[in-house]
Each structure stands twice: as structure tokens, then as C-alpha cells.
Design a protein around this nucleic acid. Structure first.
Lengths: 148, 148
DNA sequence: TTATCTGCAAACGATTTGCGGCAGC
DNA sequence: GCTGCCGCAAATCGTTTGCAGATAA
């Protein structure tokens, strides 16, 4: 909508080449909000130009990761999910049984993040944390025995 | 040392076959403490009997997972790490830069786990959580801009 | 005996890479 | 025109699976 993608400007500033492929891929990433996979991006990209290869999508994701513009997260599947850093700080729960995900507010994690910092000198990557577990519907029996 | 592995007894009780392969694999898992990979186990197993295949290691891990005797976790690499449920409740921080891991006490997460349960009806898998971030030595600049 | 387990090797899905050609700058 | 980028196809890595033979119960 802004005519020029914010990510694209970032590339220019750093002296990297702005190619049509990169423009299309970056636009796809900005269009698909939330946590997306390389295949999600590839799907959108193909509709714009079917000659762009999946390898280029991966290479661009790798680049954006290095530039610190996107974050990677593992949602419990074999596929890596990506999200824009600007997507805002929030987190996810993923049900191990049914796979359902929920958004969790940052406030849920703030106290823990602060304690990690003050007590362990560890700066948690508090952008897109993923907590595995079981949702309301899928609670198994062996979740009670957590008291050792 | 105990003559009979606890895991092995569990298999028997459930009417599953106790094969030499399983005995060797279970012993290896109990011998290697902490978070281990399929290859770690395979390495130990091979020294006892070099004919046991990696596929059997994976099949046994799958079985133990189904029985709820081990937990799986993703430590930020492409390789899955496994740990005995009896290993005790504790968690890990993993540095995205240098890969260093630290053990974190359960107390660090308890308040959060309780809030997840009471406010979201979500039972977190609070056995071996992994928090990605940056350790003392590797703190990058872009960890300061977390105030949106 | 017989259902379960095994080894092997091939299949798998996600991701990476080598290479020759192409195109931003 | 140089260098960085691309598409392609093959390689990689961790993990899974089909099958036919072996073996615990």
C-alpha cells in the first residue's frame, strides 16, 4: 500500500541489490501477516511470477534473518515459521495433541523475562515465544503428575 | 547398575516385547543423562552391538514418547533432543549466538504456568521448556528495542 | 505358532548448495 | 562490466517407512 516496502528500503540502505524477485517476496511477507512458512510465501509469490524459485525464497529469508528483520520460530512441527520483527511482541501456545495455537499477551511472560535478565543475565528472545502443552479439549492424564 | 532398567519394566508391564535391541537402547538412554539426540544414543548403542540400526533407535524413541516416558524438545538446531521424564522438571536457555545452554529452575516458570492454566485453560508442557535468547557474552544491540 | 520386532535400503520433507547464466548498479 | 543474484537440479540432513526375514512370548 505504501508503494515501497519498508523491508525493501532496508535492503537499499545496506547496499544490497533490489531485484524483482526480492520485491515480490518481501511484499508477500508483508502481506501475509503472522507466522508463515517458506511454502506460504512461495505460494503467494508464484501467483505473481511463477518463475521465481523456492530456493530464492529461502535465500531471501536467510538474508532477512541476518539483517534482523524477521524472526524464526519452531511451532512444534518440522517446518520453520517466520514472522516480521515489526509484527509486535506476542507469544503462542501450541497444543501437542490437536495442534491448535493461541495468541498469548506479552504480559504473561514479562515477569519471567525480567527475572531471566536480572537473575541469569540472559536476554530472552521475547518476540515470539512458543509454549507447547495441551489445550482445554486435549488435556491428557499425565499432566497432573508435575509435582516433584 | 540396578540390573533391570526402569524403562524396561515399563515395557513388560504394558505387554510389549523386550528385545535385546530395546534393552541396549534403553540402557543407553538411562546412561546418557540430560538432553540427548538419536545419534547420541546410536553412538553408545553401536559400541555394545554394531548391528543395531538407527531406524530401531528412532522406533524405540517413538515408542517411549507414546508411552510418555520421554519428552522431546527442540533446542534451536535441526536435531530433536530427548530426555527422560524422570530427569526432573527443569528448563533451558539457549543462546542464539553461541549456542550455550543453561539450566533454569522450575521456579522461574511456575507463575507463568499457573497463569496459563487459570487464565487460558492451557496446560503448559512444563517439563523441559526451551527459551531462546542471548547469553551475557553475546548480547546484540537489537535487544534493547523491546518496548512497543 | 504368530504377532511383533528388526535390519536394510529406499523414500521422505524441509532446506541448502554448486553451477552456469543473467541483470542491477 | 563487474559482482551479486537467480533458476535449476542435485545434494544434504534428520527422520520415516515398506518389506521380508527373524524372534519373543
Amino acid at each position: 500500500m505504501a508503494g515501497q516496502s519498508a523491508l525493501l528500503n532496508d535492503l537499499k540502505e545496506r547496499g544490497l541489490r533490489v531485484t524483482p524477485q526480492r520485491a515480490i517476496i518481501l511484499e508477500a511477507i508483508e502481506g501475509l501477516s503472522g507466522h508463515i512458512t517458506a511454502e506460504d510465501i512461495f505460494g503467494v509469490v508464484k501467483e505473481v511470477n511463477s518463475y521465481i524459485s523456492l530456493a530464492t525464497v529461502y535465500r531471501t529469508l536467510e538474508l532477512l534473518k541476518e539483517l534482523g528483520l524477521i524472526t524464526e520460530s519452531n511451532m512444534g512441527t518440522s517446518t520453520t515459521h517466520y514472522a516480521l520483527k515489526t509484527h509486535g511482541t506476542h507469544h503462542h501456545s501450541v497444543c501437542r495433541a490437536c495442534g491448535k495455537t493461541m495468541d498469548l499477551p506479552n504480559s504473561m511472560f514479562e515477569p519471567m523475562v525480567e527475572r531471566l535478565q536480572s537473575e541469569f543475565n540472559f536476554v530472552a528472545d521475547a518476540n515470539h515465544m512458543v509454549i507447547m502443552g495441551w489445550c482445554e479439549c486435549c488435556r491428557p492424564e499425565h499432566t497432573h503428575e508435575q509435582d516433584n
